[in-house]
Amino acid sequence: MKHTLVALVEDKPGVLNRVASLFRRRNFNIESLTVGHTDQPQISRMTIVIDSDNTNAYIVEANLAKLVNVIDIQDVTHQETISRDMALIKVRVDAGGRAEIAQLAEIFRAKIVDVGADSVVVEVTGDEDKIDGLVELLRPKGILEMVRTGRISMLRGNQARKESNGNGHYNGNANGQPPRDAAPSSV
């Protein structure tokens, strides 16, 4: 199962390296990792997606919490979130085929953002399943190039990313009890 962790980290040189080094050293399998600015200067936000079938989410979270530059870390998997991925997909197409691509894009609320002599670039935003769906439909046409940003996530509603639960512990489950599925599956 996919787990999504949201981390706030200090925006300082080397912090991404510390996170990446931790994942490599502990042999954590990361599906995607995105980093970007927040509304606060000096704080960056990371969205980390892991497959908890082969990497234990609690242990990733606990190890991230040990990095001095990590300000907050939360597993939002079991909460109401909006998650988005974005892709730019360059598809081979001659003048005659453009209409068909445009139609497909329309269905996916994607946009054609560049038109070349025999290619177009489609921009699509949504959850990963939606993008996967469009990619599968475009693949037979001939994808020349593609880039995806990886998942970014945010909790729904006016509930902001939960601040400290008052217990001084990062894990949503109060009192420091690891979540039920915290046992490493390899034991």
Binding site: N69, G168, Y170
Partner: peptide
Amino acid sequence: QLPNERLLKKYAPDEY
């Protein structure tokens, strides 16, 4: 005060 300090427990909760 370290940035991550709030994330690490100093005392086990009484309930536990």
